[in-house]
Design a protein around this nucleic acid. Structure first.
Length: 408
RNA sequence: CGGGGCAUAGUGAAACGGCUAUCACGAGUCUUUUGGGAAGAUUUAUUCUGAGUUCGAAUCUCAGUGCCCCGACCA
């Protein structure tokens, strides 16, 4: 994409009121626009990142045999009355309180499954959706980390036996780690937390280590299990070790065994009349994006992990009013496009070199290529990785091969 | 929901209760410029809303609203 066609503006100054790093960088770089506290518009660059994260999640959930569906955000009152959650403060009630803006979807997916699960042959079964969720947060904060409306993947699984639920639950854990790894999140810990009202068993959170985090977890020095402070014991629940390190973290996913908490009141039964057992599995996608920005940046801007970067290559022409530079830059842009690289081409004429270079750092695309009179004199293009300060000149004839190496 | 802070152009800032609310950047038009945020010309505002005090309010008072931060809350 040519940068002159991109609907985005970068800001030179940080917005006055944003203390949170992810909010500041994402707003300055033009990835998002803030409509209200905790309510954001995703601009083209931000949406590209969101789409990449969604697709990674889709791929991993599909591997688990789950199928994607989309449930409504507008959900009728009756569904919530059955499970006694109509009055939960987290929801937004609308239209004279006949509807709730969905903040989680057990109440919708469980009745759906009554229609679908007619025999033991239909079990196990798993569905997920990616959707905007609404939570009546008393205090939205920290940019994308805690919003009133946010993007979430929620998956629900249905089983005939506890054993089958347990098996599936373990597989989901592994899939979640793959998601975080592919998204470039370096330090994520499986963390045990309270199962809440549903079960004496623990639920599991996935906690990413970051200074911006709202949680404090204790990490076992022996086995690496994270332990939420609400269930902190003197010994590690997994290995019995007694030494821990405390770190600030943000929850980027959680998984629960729901058992019959929803199937019982809603009446989801197998053919023998036993309640179907359920699990639910969430990932906050917008929060994940914010967390990645918090953990991957420098003084100049964002450093996107390559799998979720909005583009793979940022091609800059410097001195583009020189006809030969412009032509060559266009040519290289076309070649890279034809090779299916995702290229953002800074073809803006009126910008100085400094502006282009600074914008490039701010946007955080993994590979930067610069073409100028200087590099053309050597039949070359300058190559730089965003994460490194090393710069090197690459012969134009070797460019494709060289770039391929770094995008694999 | 308790506590604290802030609110002036698209963004960031300035202006003792007193002249036509100033500056930088951005954005628009034109000319010149291009390796770490360039030069000139020109355009760019209901000082958050409402009330009050005053000869006079961006500035003081009260109320409201919004935003940021701390805490509580967060299946």
């Amino acid at each position: 994409m040519k940068q002159t066609d991109l609907f985005v503006k970068t800001l030179r100054d940080s917005p006055k009121d944003e203390k949170s790093l992810n909010a500041e960088l994402l707003l300055r770089a033009g990835f998002v626009d803030k409509l209200a506290s905790g309510v954001y518009t995703y601009l083209p660059l931000g949406l590209r990142v969101i789409k990449k994260i969604k697709n990674i999640i889709r791929e991993e959930m599909n591997v688990l045999g789950s199928q994607e569906i989309l449930m409504p955000a507008l959900t009728p009152k009756e569904n919530w009355e059955k499970t006694k959650r109509f009055d939960v403060a987290e929801s937004y009630k609308i239209k004279d309180e006949d509807f709730v803006l969905g903040w989680t979807h057990e109440e919708i997916v469980t009745p759906l499954m009554i229609k679908h699960i007619l025999s033991y042959k239909d079990l196990p079964c798993s569905v997920y959706q990616i959707q905007n969720k609404f939570r009546n947060e008393p205090r939205a904060k920290s940019g994308l980390l805690r919003g009133k409306e946010f993007i979430m993947k929620d998956m629900y699984s249905f089983h005939q036996t506890t054993e089958d639920l347990n098996d599936y639950y373990e597989k989901v854990k592994q899939a979640y780690f793959k998601v975080y790894e592919r998204c470039g999140l370096k330090e994520t810990y499986l963390t045990i937390a309270s199962g809440g009202e549903f079960t004496k068993e623990y639920s599991h959170e996935f906690q990413a280590i970051t200074e911006a985090g709202e949680d404090n977890i204790y990490i076992c020095n022996n086995c690496g299990l994270g332990i939420n402070k609400e269930v902190k014991d003197s010994k590690c629940q997994n290995c019995g070790n007694t030494s821990f390190v405390q770190k600030k973290s943000i929850e980027v996913g959680n998984i629960f065994k729901l058992f019959d908490r929803y199937s019982l009141p809603i009446g989801l039964k197998d053919e023998k009349g036993n309640s179907v057992l359920m699990g639910c599995y969430g990932i906050g996608i917008s929060r994940l994006m914010g967390t990645i920005v918090e953990s991957s940046n420098d003084n100049h801007g964002i450093i996107w992990p390559k799998n979720i970067a909005p583009f793979q290559i940022h091609l800059l022409e410097i001195g583009g009013n020189d006809e030969s530079v412009k032509l060559k830059a266009e040519e290289i842009y076309q070649i890279l496009q034809n090779k299916n690289f995702e290229v953002l081409y800074d073809n803006r004429d009126e910008k100085t070199a400094g502006e282009k270079l600074n914008d490039s750092d701010l946007l955080g695309i993994p590979i930067r290529l610069v073409i100028s009179k200087k590099t053309l004199a050597k039949n070359s293009v300058e190559f730089k990785k965003r994460e490194s300060s090393e710069v090197c000149l690459i012969k134009i004839t070797d460019l494709i091969k060289y770039v391929e190496q770094f995008s694999e």
